[in-house]
């Protein structure tokens, strides 16, 4: 039997510190996509709330409780991160743990770097902690969530990991060069 080695999506690419930002890979734990069936969103939210303490987030929002997080990623769809998914009779739920590349960009210039790549206003005045957007990062679709005063979580499909690192480091170098 071959001895297989698990590699994370950004293995060998991150972490990197460029100017006032640090870009690092995040080990997200289990990720489950949850899509409630028609008219079942409330029931699904209640089941999740009882089991994990997080509900089904409204569009553009995320919720967190003791390690478990729910991140809105589309119409009628959210990702449960960092916890095993309970049985949800009213929803389709699919394990996507290895499908995503999860990166954190943190530091004073994080907003400036993302402003070069994302066509949505991510400044703290309008995009607060826990807010999330599904938008573009360069030419990639990405899920971007503010996790702190100067920190964002970025998620793209695993196959896009190298492109994501290239886009972020390129933009960070540009921001750093301006001083």
């Amino acid at each position: 039997m071959a001895n297989l080695v698990a590699l994370s999506p950004c293995a060998g690419l991150l972490p990197q510190t460029i100017g006032a930002v640090t870009i690092a890979e995040v080990e997200p734990g289990r990720i489950t996509a949850i899509l409630p069936f028609k008219g079942q969103q409330k029931a699904v939210a209640e089941t999740l709330k009882t089991a994990l303490g997080v509900g089904f987030p409204a569009p553009g929002r995320s919720e967190a409780k003791a390690g478990a997080r729910m991140v809105w990623v589309g119409k009628g769809e959210a990702l449960l991160m960092g916890a095993d998914c309970p049985d949800l009779p009213g929803a389709a739920f699919v394990d996507q743990s290895d499908a995503w590349c999860v990166v954190e960009i943190a530091g004073e210039a994080a907003e400036d770097v993302l402003a070069r790549l994302v066509p949505v206003d991510l400044r703290a005045a309008v995009f607060k902690r826990g807010h999330t957007v599904k938008s573009l990062l360069g030419h990639m679709t990405a899920s971007i969530t503010r996790t702190g005063a100067n920190a964002f979580q970025i998620m793209v499909f695993r196959s896009m990991a190298e492109t994501l690192v290239e886009e972020l480091t390129h933009a960070a170098k540009g921001v750093a060069a301006r001083g």
Binding site: P59, G60, P119, V120, V133, K134, S135, L136
Partner: peptide
Amino acid sequence: PICGTRDRREF
């Protein structure tokens, strides 16, 4: 109606 006003390139 769900996301708010967004750039054309997202569509």
